[in-house]
Amino acid sequence: MPTGFTGRDIISIKELNKKEILLVLNQAEKLKRAPEPELLKGCVMGSCFFEPSTRTRLSFETAMQRLGGSVIGFADPGVSSATKGETLYDSIRIIGQYADVITMRHPLDGAARRAAEATEKPIINGGDGANQHPTQTLLDLFTIRECQKRLTNLSIAMVGDLKYGRTVHSLAQALIHFQPTFYFVAPDFLQMPDHLLEQLREAGIKYSLKKTIEEVVNKVDILYLTRIQKERFSDISEYEKAKNLYVLDVPLLAKAKPNLRVLHPLPRVNELSPAVDSTPYAYYFEQAANGLYVRQALLGLVLGKL
């Protein structure tokens, strides 16, 4: 039965409906249980990283190789024709003639959408500036379902930089399909943007704005921490005020429910103590590992092999 994914670009999580999200998660689960080392044999993935990213790039490249496919591309724009002044459009148009699928990251918002106009081959967005990072959202959903055995009716706290963090924006939007209760923990100047809160209200999703982790730790199933991203601040004094506001350490978890799991898109700086790693609540390394299966599922689907 056609999945509707063959040849499709994966640019923004907003373009996937609930059924499609669940299809990706189910395929990822199957691949995690039963690897398919021959699935993409003979297929070539163009890995185009116009901005450095270790985790996302290695995860995509490993996903392709473990499915039997091969990888071409670059990890640093310094070695691409972008340094010679070539437009993104031209670069992708040419790479699309060599590869069957293109995964990319780019520092500018909207770059993945522009790239998709340059080629008939499917583009998978691995992050375009501060805009979208749909594979991160899908791996977050996969991980939440894996550790809680369900996606619906969960209590989820998001902590840290909720204003600039694209990860939390996309995850909150995707979770709208699954009736969560949200707690947004941030100082006023880093709270969730109004347009997103408006979307939640329109969808009838319950949420509350909080200032401390203590207020929510005994209520939630998922504690999703984020790094305060220095590079997103135009006002450095705001960054200095924010950087050490939220630090999760073991004593803070004393009142946690037994099923609580801590997630973090990583890399972490100060906000997540390494002491948490050895508690049963830590699930962020499993989360990072799950990126492999979700990306395998997407590659298989857009190439029409799943």
């Binding site: 993104l88 918002d109 522009r114």
Partner: peptide
């Protein structure tokens, strides 16, 4: 108006 939008960096 978004200075980081691709449309402000290459002809789109």
């Amino acid at each position: 108006p978004n200075s980081r939008c691709i449309t402000n960096h290459e002809r789109t």
